[in-house]
Simulated assay, not measured.
Amino acid sequence: MAKQQQWNASDIDDQTGRTAVVTGANSGLGIATVDALARAGAHVVLAVRDVRRGEAAAGTVKDAKGSVEVRRLDLADLSSVREFAASWTGDLDLLINNAGVMNIPEARTKDGFEMQFGTNHLGHFALTNLLLPYVTDRVVTVASGAHKIPSSNHMHFDNLHLTGGAYSPMTAYSQSKLANLLFTLELQSRLASEGWPVRALAAHPGWAATNLQGHDASVVRRALMAVGNRFFAQDSKAGALPTLYAATQDLPGASYVGPDGFAEMRGGPTLVGRSAAASDPVSAVHLWRASEELTGVTFPQLSEAKAAL
Protein backbone atom coordinates (compact mmCIF):
# COMPACT_ATOMS: atom_id res chain seq x y z
CA MET A 1 0.00 0.00 0.00
CA ALA A 2 1.42 3.38 -0.99
CA LYS A 3 2.27 5.74 1.82
CA GLN A 4 0.01 8.79 1.98
CA GLN A 5 1.80 11.95 0.92
CA GLN A 6 2.60 14.35 3.75
CA TRP A 7 0.49 17.51 3.88
CA ASN A 8 2.52 20.60 2.99
CA ALA A 9 2.11 24.30 2.31
CA SER A 10 1.17 23.71 -1.33
CA ASP A 11 -2.01 22.02 -0.05
CA ILE A 12 -3.33 25.24 1.52
CA ASP A 13 -6.61 26.31 -0.06
CA ASP A 14 -6.75 29.64 -1.84
CA GLN A 15 -6.52 32.40 0.78
CA THR A 16 -7.32 35.30 -1.56
CA GLY A 17 -9.36 37.96 0.22
CA ARG A 18 -8.32 36.80 3.68
CA THR A 19 -6.22 38.78 6.15
CA ALA A 20 -3.83 37.32 8.72
CA VAL A 21 -1.67 38.73 11.49
CA VAL A 22 1.46 36.77 12.40
CA THR A 23 3.35 37.90 15.49
CA GLY A 24 7.12 37.53 15.64
CA ALA A 25 7.20 37.29 11.87
CA ASN A 26 10.66 38.59 11.04
CA SER A 27 12.46 35.23 11.15
CA GLY A 28 12.14 31.50 11.65
CA LEU A 29 8.68 29.98 11.92
CA GLY A 30 7.07 33.40 11.65
CA ILE A 31 8.39 34.39 8.25
CA ALA A 32 7.87 30.82 6.97
CA THR A 33 4.21 31.13 8.01
CA VAL A 34 3.91 34.55 6.37
CA ASP A 35 5.46 33.31 3.15
CA ALA A 36 3.14 30.30 2.85
CA LEU A 37 -0.03 32.32 3.55
CA ALA A 38 0.97 35.11 1.17
CA ARG A 39 1.78 32.60 -1.56
CA ALA A 40 -1.72 31.16 -1.06
CA GLY A 41 -3.19 34.62 -1.65
CA ALA A 42 -3.65 36.13 1.82
CA HIS A 43 -2.78 39.63 2.92
CA VAL A 44 -0.43 39.06 5.84
CA VAL A 45 0.60 41.57 8.48
CA LEU A 46 4.00 40.98 10.03
CA ALA A 47 3.57 42.14 13.64
CA VAL A 48 7.14 42.70 14.82
CA ARG A 49 9.08 44.54 17.50
CA ASP A 50 11.77 45.76 15.09
CA VAL A 51 10.17 47.30 12.01
CA ARG A 52 13.48 47.51 10.13
CA ARG A 53 14.03 43.78 10.51
CA GLY A 54 10.40 43.19 9.67
CA GLU A 55 10.74 45.09 6.41
CA ALA A 56 13.82 43.07 5.54
CA ALA A 57 11.92 39.85 6.23
CA ALA A 58 8.92 41.03 4.19
CA GLY A 59 11.29 41.63 1.29
CA THR A 60 12.11 37.92 1.19
CA VAL A 61 8.52 37.04 0.28
CA LYS A 62 8.71 36.76 -3.50
CA ASP A 63 6.21 35.85 -6.23
CA ALA A 64 3.25 35.71 -3.85
CA LYS A 65 -0.37 35.91 -4.97
CA GLY A 66 -1.14 37.85 -1.82
CA SER A 67 0.57 40.78 -0.12
CA VAL A 68 2.45 41.65 3.06
CA GLU A 69 2.84 44.65 5.30
CA VAL A 70 4.76 45.38 8.49
CA ARG A 71 3.41 46.89 11.71
CA ARG A 72 5.17 47.40 15.02
CA LEU A 73 4.17 45.24 17.99
CA ASP A 74 6.19 44.67 21.15
CA LEU A 75 4.51 41.93 23.17
CA ALA A 76 6.70 42.77 26.16
CA ASP A 77 5.03 46.19 26.40
CA LEU A 78 1.27 46.32 26.96
CA SER A 79 1.11 49.91 25.70
CA SER A 80 2.46 48.67 22.35
CA VAL A 81 -0.10 45.85 22.32
CA ARG A 82 -2.90 48.34 22.96
CA GLU A 83 -1.58 50.69 20.29
CA PHE A 84 -1.45 47.89 17.71
CA ALA A 85 -5.01 46.77 18.50
CA ALA A 86 -6.37 50.32 18.55
CA SER A 87 -5.02 50.92 15.05
CA TRP A 88 -6.75 47.85 13.61
CA THR A 89 -9.72 48.25 11.26
CA GLY A 90 -11.57 45.71 9.18
CA ASP A 91 -11.98 41.96 9.38
CA LEU A 92 -9.13 39.78 10.61
CA ASP A 93 -9.53 36.19 9.46
CA LEU A 94 -6.48 34.68 11.15
CA LEU A 95 -4.60 35.76 14.25
CA ILE A 96 -1.46 33.66 14.63
CA ASN A 97 0.23 34.09 17.99
CA ASN A 98 3.67 32.91 16.95
CA ALA A 99 6.19 35.18 18.68
CA GLY A 100 8.15 33.92 21.62
CA VAL A 101 11.35 33.92 23.62
CA MET A 102 12.95 30.75 24.97
CA ASN A 103 15.23 29.83 27.87
CA ILE A 104 16.60 33.34 28.33
CA PRO A 105 18.30 34.76 31.43
CA GLU A 106 15.93 36.23 33.99
CA ALA A 107 14.44 39.51 32.79
CA ARG A 108 11.30 41.60 33.10
CA THR A 109 8.93 43.11 30.55
CA LYS A 110 8.20 46.83 30.55
CA ASP A 111 5.20 46.11 32.79
CA GLY A 112 7.27 44.08 35.27
CA PHE A 113 6.24 40.57 34.20
CA GLU A 114 8.70 37.70 33.95
CA MET A 115 9.86 38.02 30.35
CA GLN A 116 8.94 34.57 29.00
CA PHE A 117 5.54 34.43 30.69
CA GLY A 118 4.93 38.08 29.83
CA THR A 119 5.88 37.81 26.16
CA ASN A 120 4.77 34.30 25.26
CA HIS A 121 1.49 34.36 27.18
CA LEU A 122 0.39 37.70 28.63
CA GLY A 123 1.22 39.77 25.55
CA HIS A 124 -0.69 37.37 23.33
CA PHE A 125 -3.53 37.14 25.85
CA ALA A 126 -3.99 40.91 25.72
CA LEU A 127 -3.58 41.12 21.95
CA THR A 128 -6.10 38.36 21.29
CA ASN A 129 -8.81 39.79 23.52
CA LEU A 130 -8.35 43.30 22.13
CA LEU A 131 -8.52 42.07 18.51
CA LEU A 132 -11.19 39.41 19.04
CA PRO A 133 -14.14 41.57 17.85
CA TYR A 134 -12.43 41.74 14.45
CA VAL A 135 -11.54 38.04 14.16
CA THR A 136 -13.77 36.11 11.76
CA ASP A 137 -12.27 32.63 11.61
CA ARG A 138 -9.68 31.51 14.15
CA VAL A 139 -6.87 32.21 16.58
CA VAL A 140 -3.83 29.91 16.43
CA THR A 141 -1.31 30.02 19.27
CA VAL A 142 2.10 28.40 18.92
CA ALA A 143 2.89 26.26 21.96
CA SER A 144 5.63 23.68 22.48
CA GLY A 145 6.27 20.12 23.55
CA ALA A 146 8.21 21.78 26.38
CA HIS A 147 4.90 22.22 28.20
CA LYS A 148 5.31 18.56 29.25
CA ILE A 149 8.59 19.15 31.09
CA PRO A 150 8.20 18.10 34.76
CA SER A 151 8.83 21.62 36.07
CA SER A 152 5.67 22.66 34.24
CA ASN A 153 3.29 19.92 35.34
CA HIS A 154 1.33 22.79 36.86
CA MET A 155 1.12 26.57 36.68
CA HIS A 156 3.01 28.30 39.48
CA PHE A 157 -0.05 30.30 40.49
CA ASP A 158 1.50 31.30 43.80
CA ASN A 159 4.50 32.80 41.96
CA LEU A 160 3.79 33.20 38.23
CA HIS A 161 6.82 35.46 37.75
CA LEU A 162 9.13 32.98 39.52
CA THR A 163 10.63 35.56 41.85
CA GLY A 164 12.68 35.01 45.00
CA GLY A 165 15.15 32.57 43.49
CA ALA A 166 12.49 30.38 41.85
CA TYR A 167 13.52 31.37 38.32
CA SER A 168 15.16 29.00 35.91
CA PRO A 169 15.12 29.56 32.13
CA MET A 170 13.53 26.20 31.32
CA THR A 171 10.92 26.37 34.08
CA ALA A 172 9.86 29.81 32.89
CA TYR A 173 9.73 28.72 29.26
CA SER A 174 7.80 25.53 29.88
CA GLN A 175 5.33 27.38 32.13
CA SER A 176 4.72 29.94 29.37
CA LYS A 177 4.04 27.15 26.87
CA LEU A 178 1.67 25.42 29.29
CA ALA A 179 -0.05 28.80 29.61
CA ASN A 180 -0.44 28.94 25.81
CA LEU A 181 -2.39 25.68 25.84
CA LEU A 182 -4.53 26.58 28.84
CA PHE A 183 -5.28 29.92 27.19
CA THR A 184 -6.41 28.13 24.02
CA LEU A 185 -8.61 25.78 26.04
CA GLU A 186 -10.39 28.57 27.93
CA LEU A 187 -10.62 30.86 24.89
CA GLN A 188 -12.40 28.11 22.96
CA SER A 189 -14.73 27.52 25.91
CA ARG A 190 -15.67 31.19 26.05
CA LEU A 191 -16.16 31.47 22.29
CA ALA A 192 -18.41 28.40 22.31
CA SER A 193 -20.40 29.74 25.26
CA GLU A 194 -21.01 32.96 23.33
CA GLY A 195 -22.07 30.99 20.26
CA TRP A 196 -19.34 32.82 18.37
CA PRO A 197 -18.15 31.13 15.15
CA VAL A 198 -14.45 31.71 15.84
CA ARG A 199 -12.17 28.84 16.82
CA ALA A 200 -9.13 28.78 19.06
CA LEU A 201 -6.44 26.24 18.19
CA ALA A 202 -2.83 25.57 19.09
CA ALA A 203 0.17 24.08 17.31
CA HIS A 204 3.76 23.19 18.01
CA PRO A 205 6.62 22.85 15.51
CA GLY A 206 8.50 19.91 17.00
CA TRP A 207 12.24 20.52 16.83
CA ALA A 208 12.69 23.26 14.28
CA ALA A 209 15.96 25.04 13.64
CA THR A 210 15.31 28.71 14.39
CA ASN A 211 17.20 31.55 16.03
CA LEU A 212 15.37 30.99 19.34
CA GLN A 213 17.88 28.41 20.48
CA GLY A 214 20.75 30.86 20.04
CA HIS A 215 19.48 32.97 22.95
CA ASP A 216 19.51 30.14 25.51
CA ALA A 217 20.89 31.22 28.88
CA SER A 218 23.01 28.06 29.09
CA VAL A 219 26.22 27.81 27.05
CA VAL A 220 25.99 24.02 27.21
CA ARG A 221 22.39 23.98 25.93
CA ARG A 222 23.31 26.42 23.17
CA ALA A 223 26.06 24.07 22.02
CA LEU A 224 23.79 21.03 22.15
CA MET A 225 21.05 22.91 20.33
CA ALA A 226 23.49 23.95 17.61
CA VAL A 227 24.43 20.31 17.03
CA GLY A 228 20.79 19.24 17.11
CA ASN A 229 19.74 22.00 14.73
CA ARG A 230 22.34 20.85 12.24
CA PHE A 231 21.72 17.12 12.33
CA PHE A 232 18.23 16.43 13.71
CA ALA A 233 15.95 19.45 13.43
CA GLN A 234 13.47 20.33 10.73
CA ASP A 235 13.95 23.59 8.89
CA SER A 236 11.63 26.51 9.60
CA LYS A 237 9.38 25.75 6.62
CA ALA A 238 8.70 22.24 7.92
CA GLY A 239 8.38 23.56 11.45
CA ALA A 240 5.70 26.02 10.34
CA LEU A 241 3.49 23.30 8.85
CA PRO A 242 1.58 22.49 12.08
CA THR A 243 0.74 26.19 12.46
CA LEU A 244 -0.37 26.42 8.85
CA TYR A 245 -2.43 23.24 9.19
CA ALA A 246 -4.16 24.61 12.28
CA ALA A 247 -4.74 27.93 10.50
CA THR A 248 -6.24 26.59 7.29
CA GLN A 249 -7.78 23.14 7.79
CA ASP A 250 -11.27 22.36 9.06
CA LEU A 251 -10.46 21.32 12.64
CA PRO A 252 -12.49 21.44 15.85
CA GLY A 253 -11.92 24.26 18.29
CA ALA A 254 -9.19 23.61 20.90
CA SER A 255 -7.38 21.24 18.52
CA TYR A 256 -3.63 20.88 19.03
CA VAL A 257 -1.46 20.16 16.00
CA GLY A 258 2.13 18.91 15.90
CA PRO A 259 4.46 16.68 13.86
CA ASP A 260 3.54 13.03 13.41
CA GLY A 261 7.07 11.62 13.76
CA PHE A 262 8.96 10.12 16.69
CA ALA A 263 8.29 12.04 19.93
CA GLU A 264 6.56 14.69 17.81
CA MET A 265 9.98 16.09 16.92
CA ARG A 266 9.54 16.17 13.15
CA GLY A 267 7.18 15.01 10.41
CA GLY A 268 3.90 16.00 8.85
CA PRO A 269 1.21 17.87 10.77
CA THR A 270 -1.38 15.89 12.69
CA LEU A 271 -3.57 16.21 15.78
CA VAL A 272 -1.53 15.51 18.92
CA GLY A 273 -2.17 15.20 22.64
CA ARG A 274 -1.58 17.54 25.56
CA SER A 275 -0.36 16.81 29.04
CA ALA A 276 -2.95 16.40 31.78
CA ALA A 277 -1.93 19.81 33.14
CA ALA A 278 -2.65 21.41 29.76
CA SER A 279 -6.10 19.80 29.67
CA ASP A 280 -7.30 21.01 33.08
CA PRO A 281 -10.28 23.37 32.71
CA VAL A 282 -10.00 24.56 36.32
CA SER A 283 -6.41 25.69 35.77
CA ALA A 284 -7.46 27.28 32.47
CA VAL A 285 -10.08 29.42 34.24
CA HIS A 286 -7.65 30.29 37.04
CA LEU A 287 -5.00 31.38 34.51
CA TRP A 288 -7.54 33.42 32.56
CA ARG A 289 -8.61 35.35 35.65
CA ALA A 290 -5.00 35.94 36.70
CA SER A 291 -4.17 37.14 33.18
CA GLU A 292 -7.08 39.57 33.18
CA GLU A 293 -5.91 40.97 36.51
CA LEU A 294 -2.30 41.32 35.37
CA THR A 295 -3.01 42.88 31.96
CA GLY A 296 -6.21 44.80 32.67
CA VAL A 297 -7.67 43.23 29.50
CA THR A 298 -10.85 41.16 29.64
CA PHE A 299 -12.80 38.92 27.30
CA PRO A 300 -14.96 41.27 25.18
CA GLN A 301 -18.73 41.26 24.97
CA LEU A 302 -18.49 40.09 21.40
CA SER A 303 -21.98 40.86 20.12
CA GLU A 304 -21.87 44.41 21.48
CA ALA A 305 -18.29 44.99 20.34
CA LYS A 306 -19.02 43.70 16.83
CA ALA A 307 -22.09 45.89 16.54
CA ALA A 308 -20.04 48.94 17.51
CA LEU A 309 -17.45 48.42 14.77
Score class of each variant (00 low, 15 high):
170 M>S: 09
125 F>P: 08
270 T>E: 14
243 T>I: 06
241 L>N: 08
209 A>T: 04
154 H>D: 06
295 T>V: 05
193 S>P: 12
279 S>A: 05
150 P>R: 00
128 T>S: 06
274 R>Y: 12
32 A>I: 05
177 K>H: 15
185 L>C: 02
1 M>R: 01
236 S>R: 14
233 A>Y: 10
74 D>G: 10
98 N>A: 13
72 R>M: 12
286 H>Y: 14
93 D>Y: 01
262 F>K: 05
191 L>R: 00
37 L>R: 00
116 Q>R: 00
72 R>F: 07
10 S>Q: 12
158 D>W: 15
116 Q>P: 00
108 R>L: 08
304 E>K: 02
298 T>W: 07
177 K>E: 14
226 A>C: 13
189 S>H: 12
108 R>V: 08
151 S>H: 09
102 M>D: 09
56 A>H: 13
193 S>W: 09
103 N>E: 08
108 R>N: 06
55 E>Q: 08
248 T>K: 12
3 K>L: 13
91 D>A: 13
133 P>R: 02
279 S>F: 04
203 A>N: 10
255 S>D: 07
208 A>K: 01
174 S>F: 12
79 S>Q: 10
290 A>R: 14
274 R>M: 12
184 T>D: 02
188 Q>E: 07
40 A>Q: 02
233 A>P: 05
271 L>W: 14
121 H>Y: 15
124 H>C: 06
274 R>S: 09
78 L>F: 14
214 G>P: 04
76 A>W: 13
69 E>I: 15
275 S>I: 07
121 H>K: 15
305 A>N: 11
22 V>Q: 02
124 H>W: 02
285 V>Q: 14
134 Y>P: 07
19 T>I: 05
168 S>F: 10
267 G>Y: 07
77 D>C: 12
39 R>E: 02
3 K>D: 15
83 E>Y: 15
258 G>I: 13
112 G>W: 07
29 L>I: 05
257 V>A: 03
297 V>H: 05
161 H>N: 14
285 V>S: 14
306 K>M: 13
49 R>A: 11
137 D>L: 07
290 A>K: 12
204 H>E: 12
139 V>N: 02
129 N>V: 10
173 Y>K: 02
61 V>Y: 00
196 W>I: 09
131 L>E: 02
178 L>E: 15
124 H>M: 04
98 N>L: 09
296 G>D: 02
55 E>W: 00
93 D>G: 03
118 G>E: 03
96 I>M: 04
284 A>E: 10
155 M>V: 13
86 A>G: 15
92 L>M: 11
53 R>Y: 07
308 A>N: 04
64 A>T: 14
226 A>W: 12
138 R>G: 08
298 T>K: 03
89 T>E: 14
280 D>S: 08
278 A>H: 05
131 L>I: 10
59 G>E: 06
50 D>L: 06
272 V>L: 09
232 F>D: 12
37 L>S: 01
28 G>K: 00
86 A>W: 12
277 A>W: 01
98 N>P: 11
155 M>G: 08
32 A>N: 03
74 D>I: 08
100 G>V: 10
222 R>D: 07
197 P>V: 13
205 P>K: 03
12 I>R: 02
254 A>M: 04
164 G>W: 04
149 I>T: 09
56 A>W: 06
116 Q>T: 15
129 N>F: 09
21 V>Q: 08
139 V>W: 04
